[in-house]
């Protein structure tokens, strides 16, 4: 069975959920091989095996660089294994890696796939295009397909295997090490769940009114155990940090519950949240487009509705 190379990400908390999603998708196309940049600890190898990795390629020497060394490592491994597909998670690093790998392998590339499957032996994808307004299906006709997959689109399923671990020493080109990370300034942790992984997201828009006013969004998020999100209008005003932005140029989220308060619902915002399972909106304007995608909406002042909601949740929790 043909190999499928999967770029996986290890963190101090373990292998990322999105990497397990990729391994799950890879099994539909062939035999999954994980490509792990950095050190491979036993726990990482164990969870990659649990989700079906037959091989784990460990690539040292990528620290301090963004993405080109990872791309060259994949190209190096692909040169020996002729994979049917290379799968990476959508996001800045994933896009950079996928782009370079596609050029080097002359491989067709699909980005932000929400599904990957094999149809008659051909790698076939689904993706939403045009700010989520259309669904396109495509077939990749080159020998290898390069696909970036949206996080949270494919449910991870275990399929235990015992991976063979292989260290791959790659002679990186000058271009690979030409761009160096010179500083890394850590952000203050809020203790809330990560936006893209959270089951509940509570987002505020310009209608929240002020930086102080945004506190009500955070309180509701905490009472629901969720993450905080925002519109670009809010991040442009610096009421909250940019990494909380949801939408076309921010994060794409698909939680079980998305609460949108004081958000008009511009297409660029909806593009990042409209595949959420349940959507709730609070807006004082009955014509706000956000109500078109809401399962439940309250027309009113969020500074009245949300505090009442937080109280009520408190009472129900007892």
């Amino acid at each position: 069975m043909s190999e499928v190379l999967v770029l996986v990400e290890n963190t101090p908390q373990g292998i990322r959920k999105s990497s397990l999603e990729l391994l799950t998708a890879a099994r539909r196309l062939g035999s999954p091989s994980a490509v792990l940049c950095g050190a491979a600890d036993d726990a990482a190898v164990a969870s990659l095996g649990e989700y079906g990795a037959a091989t784990v390629y460990v690539v040292p020497g990528t620290d301090g660089y963004l993405s080109v060394p990872a791309a060259e490592a994949i190209v190096d491994i692909a040169g020996r294994t002729n994979p049917v597909a290379v799968l990476v998670t959508s996001g800045p690093i994933g896009k950079d890696v996928a782009a370079r790998v596609a050029v080097r392998l002359g491989a067709g590339i699909v980005t932000d796939a929400t599904d990957v499957r094999s149809e008659g032996g051909v790698v076939t994808t689904s993706q939403t295009v045009v700010s989520g307004q259309w669904v396109a299906t495509a077939q990749v006709t080159s020998a290898t397909a390069v696909v970036t997959v949206r996080p949270n689109a494919i449910a991870p399923e275990a399929a235990p295997a015992t991976p063979a671990v292989q260290t791959v020493d790659v002679a990186f080109s000058a271009a690979a090490t030409g761009a160096k990370i010179t500083a890394s300034n850590p952000k203050v942790s809020t203790g809330r769940p990560e936006l893209t992984d959270a089951a509940v997201v509570v987002s505020g828009g310009r209608g929240v009114g002020s930086e102080e006013g945004f506190g009500v969004i955070e309180r509701l998020a905490d009472s629901l155990g969720g993450a905080v999100g925002a519109t670009r209008a809010v991040t442009d005003l610096h009421w909250v940090s940019h990494d909380l932005q949801v939408g076309q140029t921010g994060k794409t989220v698909a939680p079980s519950l998305y609460v949108a308060a004081g958000i008009s619902g511009a297409i660029q915002h909806r593009a990042g949240m409209q595949s959420s399972k349940t959507i709730v909106a609070v807006n004082k304007d009955p014509k706000a487009p956000i109500f078109q995608v809401a399962d439940y909406g309250v027309i009113g002042d969020l500074h009245k509705v949300l505090p009442a909601l937080i109280d009520e949740i408190g009472k129900r929790k007892g």
Binding site: W134, V135, A136, Q139, S142, D295, Y296
Partner: peptide, 18 residues
């Protein structure tokens, strides 16, 4: 190297309670 085989509008969400 990528052949688009179909393009269809995203299914509309069922209207909610407002």
């Amino acid at each position: 190297a990528v052949k688009v085989t179909s393009v269809t509008p995203t299914p509309a969400r069922t209207a909610g309670t407002i």
